[in-house]
Amino acid sequence: MKNYKPLFFWIVVICFFTGILLAQQYLKKQGSDLIPGSGGNFTLQSDRGPVSLSDYKGKIIALYFGYMSCPDICPASLWNLSEAIKMLTPEQAEQIQGIFVSVDPDRDSPHALGLFVKGFIDSFVGLTGSKQEIDKIARQYSVVYEKVPLKDSAMGYVIDHSSVIYLIDREGVLQYFVPHDTDPESIRDDLLKLLER
């Protein structure tokens, strides 16, 4: 009678590690394909109460997901966006609504978010909500984000996240995905395309 126990053990071990490898590939794929879902409406909290994307029907929305403790990627994206808007005529600029959604509701209150975004353009809105709400919206927009503890850092944790400006037309339909660190001129050109429609 052969003893199959060691063989069985190794099969289990191999399956386990294969599973981990496959999961890693899958997660990587999610990261590389920032291919959005179809976007769509949602409601979150601002410093002045609940705000829905549909409140801005008739305007062009520039939507960005990030977090306030982010040192440069998030503010740089908002800054590029605000510079792009400032290149437009006041009439055109009025038709653009910038929205920042924080994926870090534990640290970013709607009040603080309001102060933060107004530093870029006064009409910008800062939103957040419960983790469940944010997860749902992240799926809608294929936003990848993950809370990662940072060992030996006063930050405690960081949030790894995809960095894309979503441009939504007057009808609320997602039209452009602007990669992060796109220069303001290119963002302005995309905004103009949507303004001309």
């Binding site: 982010c70 990627i73 060992k151 030996d152 960081v158 790894d160 995809s162």
Partner: peptide, 12 residues
């Protein structure tokens, strides 16, 4: 910062 296929990962 590590740019991992568009996902920004900040590390100490």
């Amino acid at each position: 910062h590590i740019d991992d296929n568009g996902v920004m990962r900040m590390r100490k």
